[in-house]
Measured scan of single mutants.
Amino acid sequence: MSRVPSPPPPAEMSSGPVAESWCYTQIKVVKFSYMWTINNFSFCREEMGEVIKSSTFSSGANDKLKWCLRVNPKGLDEESKDYLSLYLLLVSCPKSEVRAKFKFSILNAKGEETKAMESQRAYRFVQGKDWGFKKFIRRDFLLDEANGLLPDDKLTLFCEVSVVQDSVNISGQNTMNMVKVPECRLADELGGLWENSRFTDCCLCVAGQEFQAHKAILAARSPVFSAMFEHEMEESKKNRVEINDVEPEVFKEMMCFIYTGKAPNLDKMADDLLAAADKYALERLKVMCEDALCSNLSVENAAEILILADLHSADQLKTQAVDFINYHASDVLETSGWKSMVVSHPHLVAEAYRSLASAQCPFLGPPRKRLKQS
């Protein structure tokens, strides 16, 4: 649940008159999402009104509101027999009622949201009550392989729920002597030191190019640089560091992050930047690179990204790559990247197969709970 924001200063709310007192009302909304995959969808019983329910879910471990999704594969009634019906059901509720908006969509073979439908307002739910769409999607369109909505005969539904909580009022009075504290510009100011090479005390040599930097900042941000300058190493004695395995453009992006906490060109060089972040123990930059690479996972590059993640101990990226390969196994196994990995990294192939087997055979063990970014 997000923290209630402070109200904007009255002088910034309007260029008009300023009242002596004010009130700011925040209506709290808890948002969460749920993904439900139905394997072997074409084998569902086709009687009209037949119901399939998901397991229950909530916004978190401490949330007492429990929900589930309900599907009628062949419609709810005679009117909707040519459609799939989809509903959000409130299973248990400690209150007399709650209000919530919802959005349903289908994830296609690429994991993209399609055929989205959402409620136009927050509906009133009581325990045992459901709301949804009797005519969510035509069955003939859903079952047509050309539309790519049932890869490997799996129907994957994605649901986003927004639950309306209580409202909170914050009130106060205006004073004539309003003090406005300026925003912190530390990142910009440190970035200026790097860009202008002011007050530098060490030189970093990268592929024949020299960059002036500040030992204190490098040591504070990177345990690797800290070790170089702290001990009686040649880098500490000469205040000069030779860097041979990072390209200059990648190095500059890494230094921008060290000084400012930002990497504006990360998406263009996420793979190389991940390697640099791993070498210099820049954990936050490493996770930022993992996130960017996750966003660009595809059938063509899944094997290469899995190898990269394994090489640099990028655990979150590795998990996402394995899950992606499992979901698109029939396509990924035909790529040149996968065939190369079979020869060069057989242990990763074995890991992917083990994960695929456990996903398809849940009876082999208890269900695993899916539970950071600093």
Rank of each mutant, 00 (worst) to 15 (best):
residue 20 E to S: 09
residue 29 V to Q: 05
residue 74 K to Q: 01
residue 182 P to L: 03
residue 133 F to N: 12
residue 173 Q to D: 01
residue 235 E to V: 02
residue 332 V to M: 07
residue 310 D to Q: 03
residue 30 V to N: 12
residue 341 M to C: 09
residue 286 K to N: 07
residue 170 I to V: 02
residue 24 Y to W: 15
residue 175 T to S: 01
residue 130 D to K: 00
residue 198 R to P: 15
residue 17 P to I: 07
residue 261 G to T: 08
residue 120 Q to C: 13
residue 137 I to Q: 12
residue 66 K to H: 10
residue 339 K to R: 06
residue 160 E to M: 13
residue 180 K to E: 08
residue 61 A to T: 02
residue 38 I to A: 08
residue 182 P to R: 01
residue 99 R to P: 09
residue 257 F to K: 01
residue 372 K to T: 04
residue 308 L to H: 10
residue 227 A to P: 01
residue 43 F to C: 04
residue 362 P to I: 15
residue 24 Y to R: 12
residue 69 L to R: 00
residue 234 E to T: 14
residue 293 L to Y: 11
residue 338 W to L: 05
residue 123 Y to P: 07
residue 75 G to H: 08
residue 99 R to E: 12
residue 359 A to K: 01
residue 305 I to Q: 07
residue 196 N to Y: 13
residue 104 F to G: 00
residue 186 L to N: 03
residue 365 G to N: 15
residue 148 G to E: 04
residue 14 S to D: 13
residue 194 W to G: 06
residue 306 L to F: 04
residue 172 G to A: 06
residue 281 A to T: 03
residue 109 A to S: 09
residue 330 S to Q: 13
residue 25 T to V: 05
residue 220 A to I: 08
residue 185 R to V: 03
residue 37 T to G: 02
residue 344 S to W: 08
residue 66 K to P: 06
residue 179 V to E: 02
residue 70 R to N: 13
residue 39 N to Y: 05
residue 195 E to N: 08
residue 102 F to I: 01
residue 131 W to L: 09
residue 33 S to M: 14
residue 140 D to M: 01
residue 183 E to K: 04
residue 245 D to Y: 04
residue 219 A to D: 13
residue 324 F to I: 01
residue 187 A to W: 12
residue 25 T to Q: 05
residue 47 E to F: 05
residue 226 S to F: 13
residue 3 R to D: 02
residue 342 V to R: 09
residue 62 N to K: 08
residue 240 R to Q: 05
residue 51 V to E: 06
residue 83 Y to G: 13
residue 322 V to R: 11
residue 18 V to E: 04
residue 208 G to H: 14
residue 89 L to S: 05
residue 368 R to E: 13
residue 23 C to W: 02
residue 121 R to E: 09
residue 60 G to D: 07
residue 122 A to L: 13
residue 72 N to I: 14
residue 236 S to C: 02
residue 101 K to H: 12
residue 134 K to Q: 01
residue 313 S to C: 03
residue 214 H to I: 14
residue 199 F to S: 15
residue 115 K to Y: 06
residue 49 G to N: 06
residue 70 R to T: 13
residue 8 P to M: 07
residue 374 S to F: 14
residue 195 E to K: 04
residue 59 S to V: 02
residue 205 C to Y: 06
residue 245 D to Q: 05
residue 12 E to G: 06
residue 296 N to Y: 14
residue 361 C to N: 14
residue 10 P to S: 11
residue 13 M to T: 04
residue 225 F to C: 15
residue 3 R to M: 08
residue 235 E to N: 09
residue 123 Y to W: 13
residue 202 C to R: 14
residue 289 C to G: 06
residue 104 F to R: 00
residue 308 L to Q: 07
residue 327 Y to L: 09
residue 97 E to L: 09
residue 234 E to A: 14
residue 205 C to H: 13
residue 22 W to P: 00
residue 210 E to K: 12
residue 150 L to A: 11
residue 311 L to D: 08
residue 126 V to F: 08
residue 353 Y to M: 14
residue 171 S to H: 06
residue 84 L to F: 04
residue 363 F to T: 14
residue 152 D to H: 15
residue 271 D to S: 06
residue 217 I to A: 12
residue 109 A to V: 12
residue 115 K to S: 09
residue 107 L to G: 15
residue 77 D to M: 03
residue 270 A to I: 05
residue 259 Y to H: 01
residue 5 P to E: 03
residue 362 P to S: 13
residue 193 L to Q: 04
residue 103 K to A: 03
residue 292 A to T: 09
residue 374 S to N: 15
residue 298 S to K: 11
residue 132 G to D: 01
residue 38 I to F: 05
residue 71 V to P: 03
residue 144 D to K: 12
residue 43 F to D: 13
residue 139 R to L: 10
residue 140 D to K: 11
residue 52 I to S: 05
residue 31 K to R: 03
residue 175 T to Y: 04
residue 313 S to R: 07
residue 14 S to A: 02
residue 167 S to R: 10
residue 143 L to M: 05
residue 91 V to D: 10
residue 267 D to W: 06
residue 202 C to Y: 09
residue 39 N to Q: 13
residue 18 V to Y: 03
residue 133 F to I: 03
residue 220 A to K: 07
residue 17 P to G: 13
residue 208 G to Y: 14
residue 61 A to P: 13
residue 223 P to I: 03
residue 39 N to M: 08
residue 333 L to M: 07
residue 141 F to N: 02
residue 158 F to R: 09
residue 363 F to G: 11
residue 219 A to S: 08
residue 130 D to Q: 12
residue 344 S to C: 13
residue 205 C to N: 15
residue 271 D to T: 08
residue 361 C to K: 11
residue 272 D to P: 03
residue 217 I to D: 00
residue 337 G to R: 04
residue 363 F to P: 15
residue 190 L to F: 10
residue 344 S to M: 08
residue 109 A to C: 09
residue 149 L to C: 04
residue 200 T to K: 01
residue 371 L to T: 14
residue 52 I to G: 04
residue 93 C to G: 11
residue 60 G to S: 11
residue 222 S to V: 15
residue 343 V to N: 07
residue 327 Y to H: 02
residue 206 V to S: 13
residue 18 V to G: 10
residue 77 D to P: 15
residue 353 Y to C: 06
residue 71 V to K: 14
residue 180 K to Q: 10
residue 269 M to V: 05
residue 217 I to S: 05
residue 126 V to H: 07
residue 27 I to E: 13
residue 352 A to D: 01
residue 366 P to H: 08
residue 105 S to K: 04
residue 13 M to C: 05
residue 100 A to P: 01
residue 19 A to W: 13
residue 148 G to Q: 07
residue 151 P to G: 10
residue 237 K to R: 01
residue 297 L to W: 03
residue 367 P to T: 13
residue 364 L to Q: 14
residue 348 L to H: 07
residue 196 N to T: 12
residue 207 A to F: 12
residue 345 H to F: 09
residue 266 L to P: 08
residue 139 R to D: 05
residue 11 A to Q: 08
residue 336 S to E: 07
residue 288 M to T: 01
residue 32 F to V: 03
residue 220 A to Y: 14
residue 130 D to Y: 02
residue 75 G to K: 07
residue 255 M to P: 00
residue 170 I to M: 03
residue 263 A to G: 05
residue 294 C to K: 15
residue 52 I to V: 13
residue 297 L to H: 00
residue 148 G to P: 07
residue 329 A to T: 07
residue 112 E to I: 13
residue 97 E to I: 05
residue 229 F to Y: 13
residue 13 M to H: 09
residue 294 C to V: 11
residue 368 R to D: 08
residue 328 H to F: 11
residue 329 A to Y: 08
residue 162 S to C: 04
residue 99 R to K: 05
residue 335 T to M: 05
residue 282 L to H: 06
residue 155 L to Q: 14
residue 168 V to W: 03
residue 218 L to K: 00
residue 13 M to S: 03
residue 167 S to W: 11
residue 172 G to S: 03
residue 142 L to H: 12
residue 277 A to S: 05
residue 374 S to A: 12
residue 81 K to F: 15
residue 261 G to V: 05
residue 101 K to L: 13
residue 247 E to I: 04
residue 165 Q to E: 09
residue 321 A to L: 07
residue 210 E to T: 11
residue 202 C to K: 14
residue 356 L to A: 04
residue 210 E to A: 12
residue 234 E to D: 14
residue 110 K to E: 09
residue 135 K to A: 10
residue 326 N to D: 03
residue 371 L to E: 05
residue 118 E to I: 06
residue 263 A to Q: 03
residue 337 G to L: 11
residue 96 S to N: 10
residue 88 L to P: 01
residue 310 D to L: 05
residue 124 R to M: 03
residue 263 A to C: 09
residue 84 L to R: 00
residue 88 L to M: 06
residue 118 E to F: 07
residue 324 F to W: 05
residue 118 E to Y: 01
residue 24 Y to T: 08
residue 67 W to D: 00
residue 187 A to M: 02
residue 182 P to I: 12
residue 65 L to R: 10
residue 203 C to Q: 13
residue 90 L to H: 10
residue 351 E to M: 08
residue 70 R to F: 14
residue 122 A to Y: 13
residue 6 S to W: 10
residue 9 P to L: 02
residue 50 E to D: 02
residue 191 G to I: 10
residue 190 L to Y: 07
residue 9 P to A: 14
residue 353 Y to T: 00
residue 358 S to N: 03
residue 90 L to F: 09
residue 360 Q to K: 07
residue 54 S to Y: 00
residue 200 T to L: 14
residue 68 C to R: 07
residue 181 V to K: 09
residue 31 K to T: 14
residue 24 Y to E: 07
residue 260 T to S: 08
residue 296 N to I: 09
residue 340 S to D: 12
residue 69 L to A: 09
residue 167 S to F: 07
residue 164 V to G: 06
residue 125 F to Y: 13
residue 288 M to C: 12
residue 329 A to G: 02
residue 180 K to G: 02
residue 296 N to H: 13
residue 304 E to F: 06
residue 8 P to K: 10
residue 21 S to P: 10
residue 65 L to Y: 13
residue 204 L to M: 13
residue 294 C to M: 13
residue 46 E to L: 08
residue 148 G to A: 01
residue 17 P to L: 02
residue 69 L to W: 08
residue 356 L to F: 11
residue 27 I to G: 14
residue 110 K to R: 07
residue 184 C to R: 03
residue 329 A to P: 10
